[in-house]
């Protein structure tokens, strides 16, 4: 059994940011659209979407691939005057890591304490790994990584190089998070 299973789910990404003092409004608007916005440092993961909060009053909303910009435009309309929605589907790449060696591999680049007692499933954090910005979301099977697209290939190469001694399996790009529903 390989230490690391790596796949790259295709995702639509919208960054939602509240204007001053409007975070509560966005939470209500999001709830009305069937999305719960998590507290800072947390992520809510469902089979087909996720919401991640690693910046105050800002959320990354991940969902299945859609027409470029369409969901950002819909969120922008819904939040007009209270928040800003920007499409980042092309700017962020998701890497889904699972397997027994996930934490061992990540410890070779990640400065954060990923011990399950500190970073259990549902926690999220922004940090830097291999000199690249990375957002980590703890899942039950491992970790979901979100990283800027222009350095994603570099980061992927680093990850594969680092994981090689543990054995790595590249799984097909399955639909978004289908392997790890949390709710």
């Amino acid at each position: 059994m390989p230490g690391l299973r790596l796949r790259r789910p295709a995702t639509d990404v919208v960054e939602l940011a509240a204007l001053s003092g409007r975070a509560g409004d966005l939470e209500r608007i999001a709830a009305g659209r069937g999305t719960t916005l998590p507290a800072f440092g947390h992520a809510l993961l469902k089979a087909d979407r996720a919401a991640v909060c690693v910046r105050p009053a800002r959320w990354l909303l991940l969902g299945p691939p859609a027409a470029p910009g369409a969901s950002a435009a819909a969120w922008a309309d819904a939040c007009a005057g209270r928040g800003v929605a920007v499409d980042l589907s092309s700017g962020i790449v998701a890497l889904d890591l699972a397997g027994p060696a996930v934490r061992e591999v990540l410890a070779r680049g990640c400065r954060l304490d990923l011990d399950p007692s500190i970073f259990p499933p549902g926690r999220a954090a922004a940090t830097v790994m291999a000199q690249v910005s990375v957002i980590l979301v703890a899942t039950r099977a491992g970790v979901l990584l979100l990283t800027p697209s222009t350095t994603a290939r570099h980061f992927g190469e680093w990850l594969e190089h680092t994981a090689a001694p543990f054995g790595i399996e590249r799984a097909a790009a399955l639909p978004f998070l289908s392997g790890d529903p949390h709710e």
Binding site: S90, R108, A130, Q131, T150, T151, H154, E157, W158, H161
Partner: peptide, 15 residues
């Protein structure tokens, strides 16, 4: 550490 060779610094690639 591993920040050598190809990993010395990140490479940003154009889309």
């Amino acid at each position: 550490g591993s920040d050598v060779g190809a990993h010395f610094k990140p490479k940003r690639r154009l889309p």
